[in-house]
Design a protein around this nucleic acid. Structure first.
Length: 259
DNA sequence: ATGGTCGAGAGTCGA
């Protein structure tokens, strides 16, 4: 089973590029962030005609997540548990029925800038809620995959210019510590367990020729529970699509599982 | 140090 995460930065601007990539990469499950659309505005028919089930958790203008799956989905839930007053659409979760059942979450973790400030406070509180939920998910019998735009640069080697991110919410020590607390529950970050060293990125800013200068950061991650890590066969980043017409500022990151 | 670019959709904010 191939599972990919992709921050598309707006479905209205990206549905053609998204279709092209789906045809080429053929993921069984595509986890999308920043759809920037309400549920009714998501062009679900386009993807249903390609054989995908479509589950969205949208919001007007900002945020919004979605799951496209060629495999059956069960028990779809929307929203990160732990705060009923949180109205931001950043989490959708479903059980994917392949050769075996996998619990898959698609997440868009808050950016948190500027830090310090209320947005950074929200990021850290959200990560603590995620930690609690990630811990609860480990109690299930199923392999668990937590994938999406984490807005976290885990280590300096995950940025082309780490010094430029020193004061940024994506790289502050408190941000990295909150990310490690989730990993230390027993999750494995899929890409890093297979590919060591610097130079691997999933985001290049639109500004200042970041792509042309390869000034990137690696902030899109797939975290695997121990049962899911046992199934890991391959990982990759579809870097080349960043060079196309009207690209997202992120590119897809994917895993292949024996499942 | 500054300004640089996108997307959504409304006359600006978030990234």
């Amino acid at each position: 089973m191939k599972i990919a995460t992709f921050n598309i930065n707006g479905i209205k601007a990206r549905f053609e590029a998204l279709q092209d990539w789906l045809r080429e990469a053929e993921p069984d499950v595509a986890l999308l962030q920043e759809i920037k659309s309400v549920d009714e505005g998501f062009p679900r028919e386009i993807f249903e005609e390609m054989g995908y089930r479509v589950e969205t958790h949208g919001q007007k203008s900002f945020n919004g997540v979605a799951i496209l799956s060629r495999l059956p989905l069960e028990d779809v839930t929307r929203g990160l548990p732990g705060d009923e007053t949180d109205e931001q659409a950043r989490w959708i979760e479903a059980t994917v029925i392949g050769q075996r059942a996998l619990r898959v979450a698609c997440l868009y973790l808050p950016n948190g800038n500027p830090a310090p400030g209320p947005k950074y406070d929200y990021k850290l509180a959200w990560m603590e809620r995620m930690r609690a939920h990630a811990e609860a998910l480990l109690d299930s019998e199923e392999p668990v995959i937590l994938a999406g735009d984490y807005n976290i640069i885990p280590q300096d080697e995950d940025a082309a210019k780490p010094e430029a991110w020193r004061e940024d919410a994506l790289a502050l020590p408190e941000s990295r510590a909150a990310f490690r607390r989730i990993l230390n529950l027993g999750y494995t970050e899929a890409f890093r367990t297979r590919v060591p060293g610097p130079g691997h990125y999933s985001f290049w800013d639109y500004q200042a020729g970041a792509w042309q200068r390869n000034n990137g950061i690696r902030i899109d991650h797939l975290l695997l529970s121990p049962q899911a890590a046992d199934l890991l066969r391959d990982v990759g980043i579809d870097k080349d699509i960043r060079a196309r017409e009207k690209p997202s500022d992120h590119v897809p990151v994917w895993i292949e599982l024996d499942a």
